[in-house]
Amino acid sequence: MPPKPKGLLERLKAGETVVVAEGYLFEFERRGYLKAGAFVPEVVVEHPELVKGLYREFVHAGSDVVLAFTYYGHREKLRVIGREADLEPMNRTALRLAREVADETGTLMAGNICNTTVFDPNVPSTHEECITIFKEQIEWAVEEGADFIVAETYGMVAEAKLALECINKYSKGLPAVVCMTFHKDADRSVDGLSLLDSMRALEEAGAAVVGLNCGRGPFTMLPLVERIKDKIKVPVAALPVPFRCDELRPTMQSLVNHKGERAFPTDLDAFLCSRSMIAEFGQRCRQLGLQYVGLCCGNASHFTRTLAESLGRTPPASKYSPDMSQHFAYGTDKKLHSLNTEKVVKLL
């Protein structure tokens, strides 16, 4: 077993960048093991071996963290599909497998809580529902050996702060990474706070890392990160979706397909970023000195490898990074057979 890795806070204090692969929901939906719409991680209890395999795959590609696949595995989401009986087994299995892979690979393991879909700032009873949801998931993460807790994809500062308060109260001192998502309005959270004030509120409430995840693509998230990076004292996170969003359609939810219909979620394939775009995103993150970087919904292992390499890493998967010098037609490797490649290229 590899030696115990440095903790999150230790890495951040040393100025290191932590690469985090996310995107389990979309990847398992693409593979045919998860239903788009409900987006509940049923695969955890139905095919745990596949979840463990994807954990390993993302680490192989360069992730420093095994993020337990408990996103949308909370009480409310399971209630909607009639699987509340699977709540604890689903969470504990995802966490246990993540811990096993982290121990095997010398990486960190993070618990994961997220937006609840029930929070209403004006209805106190929903706050109690959320506390129950957060508390049980956090406590299971602690019991299963999480190194830190990720709370993410909050549109409202009030819900993000409530999640952070629960981490502070129930995690026995584990660091918290808290990320929000800003949809069409890049300047305001759903509950009306500015981008900067939103991040400052989370920083002041004790988050070890604050930032943005999901919703926006690399090139519609980076301008927001650039606006806050030097005005926040704690490290800033950037975990976009790998889709080609732009100023007109800044989020994956606002993209439209060739028929003018909403592309989210099943027609997003046509909008996937190229690897060179992901590399460009990583290079910009490196220039900005961001310390918590990753990819969210739509991520796949080749994107994580590209991101890691753009940050100066050489993960195990780099052994298989493209090398077109060895290609029979386009290659320049002297070991290639003597071919009239000019004619072949014209045919191709």
Rank of each mutant, 00 (worst) to 15 (best):
residue 116 T to W: 11
residue 99 R to A: 06
residue 19 V to Y: 12
residue 132 T to Y: 13
residue 28 F to I: 05
residue 110 A to H: 08
residue 199 M to W: 07
residue 170 Y to P: 07
residue 58 F to M: 15
residue 194 S to C: 12
residue 279 A to K: 12
residue 112 N to K: 03
residue 216 R to T: 03
residue 279 A to S: 10
residue 62 G to H: 01
residue 337 H to V: 12
residue 245 C to G: 03
residue 262 R to D: 11
residue 122 N to L: 15
residue 254 S to C: 10
residue 8 L to A: 04
residue 138 I to V: 05
residue 29 E to S: 13
residue 317 A to R: 03
residue 123 V to Y: 14
residue 121 P to Q: 15
residue 206 G to K: 11
residue 177 V to T: 08
residue 318 S to E: 11
residue 162 L to Y: 15
residue 1 M to G: 13
residue 183 H to N: 13
residue 231 K to H: 13
residue 136 E to M: 06
residue 131 I to L: 14
residue 12 L to C: 10
residue 162 L to C: 14
residue 261 E to F: 03
residue 229 K to D: 05
residue 212 L to G: 07
residue 277 M to E: 09
residue 318 S to Q: 14
residue 28 F to V: 02
residue 315 P to D: 11
residue 168 N to P: 14
residue 135 K to H: 12
residue 217 G to K: 01
residue 76 E to N: 14
residue 38 A to C: 05
residue 200 R to Q: 15
residue 333 D to Q: 05
residue 336 L to I: 00
residue 65 V to P: 00
residue 205 A to V: 05
residue 193 L to G: 01
residue 97 L to G: 07
residue 6 K to P: 00
residue 207 A to P: 01
residue 281 F to L: 11
residue 244 R to F: 04
residue 344 V to W: 15
residue 331 G to K: 12
residue 174 L to C: 01
residue 315 P to G: 08
residue 53 G to C: 09
residue 243 F to R: 04
residue 35 K to I: 08
residue 128 E to R: 08
residue 235 P to S: 01
residue 163 A to E: 10
residue 331 G to P: 12
residue 186 A to L: 12
residue 174 L to N: 03
residue 289 G to L: 09
residue 75 R to I: 05
residue 76 E to I: 01
residue 92 R to Q: 09
residue 110 A to T: 04
residue 21 A to R: 00
residue 279 A to N: 03
residue 313 R to K: 09
residue 138 I to S: 10
residue 150 V to W: 14
residue 253 Q to D: 07
residue 195 L to A: 05
residue 22 E to R: 02
residue 275 R to I: 08
residue 5 P to R: 03
residue 203 E to V: 02
residue 319 K to S: 10
residue 116 T to G: 11
residue 104 E to V: 01
residue 315 P to A: 04
residue 314 T to C: 15
residue 101 V to G: 09
residue 43 V to M: 01
residue 185 D to F: 06
residue 259 K to T: 00
residue 298 G to M: 14
residue 146 A to N: 06
residue 293 V to L: 06
residue 346 K to W: 13
residue 161 K to Y: 14
residue 346 K to V: 01
residue 287 Q to L: 10
residue 237 A to I: 02
residue 307 L to D: 07
residue 299 N to I: 00
residue 346 K to Y: 02
residue 31 R to C: 05
residue 317 A to K: 03
residue 249 R to Q: 12
residue 41 P to D: 15
residue 276 S to R: 15
residue 140 W to F: 13
residue 275 R to S: 08
residue 213 N to Q: 06
residue 306 T to G: 06
residue 132 T to G: 13
residue 233 K to A: 14
residue 311 L to S: 03
residue 86 D to P: 03
residue 78 L to Y: 11
residue 319 K to D: 14
residue 252 M to C: 07
residue 336 L to K: 07
residue 131 I to A: 10
residue 247 E to W: 09
residue 182 F to V: 07
residue 286 R to A: 10
residue 307 L to W: 11
residue 100 E to S: 04
residue 348 L to K: 15
residue 120 D to F: 02
residue 196 L to K: 01
residue 169 K to Y: 07
residue 278 I to F: 07
residue 119 F to G: 00
residue 179 C to L: 13
residue 146 A to I: 00
residue 52 K to P: 05
residue 98 A to D: 13
residue 218 P to H: 09
residue 82 G to I: 04
residue 29 E to D: 06
residue 47 H to P: 00
residue 146 A to S: 12
residue 33 Y to E: 14
residue 23 G to K: 00
residue 182 F to A: 09
residue 155 G to Q: 10
residue 89 P to E: 08
residue 47 H to C: 03
residue 22 E to T: 04
residue 166 C to T: 06
residue 186 A to R: 13
residue 103 D to Y: 03
residue 220 T to L: 09
